[in-house]
Design a protein around this nucleic acid. Structure first.
Lengths: 110, 110
DNA sequence: TGACTATATGCGCAATGACGCATGTAGTTG
DNA sequence: CAACTACATGCGTCATTGCGCATATAGTCA
């Protein structure tokens, strides 16, 4: 081994960045959160998130393309479910970090 | 408690999304990776990442605004260091998830 | 003060992505 | 087949953001 940590390959970096980008949209986070207790149909998700049908569908497509959710068709309806539970670990880590930051800021201001 | 998980507030959702957005840029990930072993000056980071000075500076600004890195000025130079090590946990989680996905795809095709 | 170095920033361009609207497609039921 | 439902998608628009270029600022040294 020459360099212990050689320059990260552009591809690897792009993959990781892309994964974070998928999670950088409030509506997609909302959808994932709605799916935390199991699969739901698109219509159910539309109602629980308050988004338009078109927008919800597109975001679900994005999540599915990234492999974060799974699609299951049953008759007229399509059910989506979380394919990669590690997403929630990610969100918890971020939330914890944000809480720490807010707590610090709060202590600064009083 | 009425609803165990009430609709996530827009503000909270935006904060989390914003945090993910910060991490969704390859150059910023590269910068953070360069900082894994301790603080570095902007010039050092320019060299180790291969970016332009202006671009590196701006990305560092973005990371600093988000509270992910700390700024320390010493004479002419400015040293940046990781302020929130949980970032690396995030990246490892994502990498692990991506590896799993790739392994699955590989097994499908071969 | 003036020259030099290290870093930051204003500006313009190009690419990306989210959204709404309308429409397309698949499946069900009569 | 026609009508209906659930979902997907093409298109146009708008806002955001990354980048390069040039320039500004801050600190050092002669």
């Amino acid at each position: 081994m020459r360099k212990k940590t050689r320059a990260l390959s552009d591809e690897a970096l792009s993959l990781v960045a892309r994964r974070f980008a998928i999670l950088s949209e409030p509506m997609r986070l909302r959808l994932l959160h709605s799916l935390v207790n199991g699969e739901k149909s698109v219509n159910t998700l539309v109602e629980s998130t308050g988004g338009t049908q078109a927008n919800v569908s597109r975001h679900l497509q994005t999540l599915a393309d990234a492999g974060l959710v799974k699609r299951r068709k049953e008759g007229l309806q399509v059910f989506y479910s979380v394919a990669d539970p590690s997403i929630f670990d990610l969100c918890e880590l971020v939330c914890g970090s944000l809480e720490k930051q807010l707590a610090q800021r709060a202590s600064i201001f009083g």
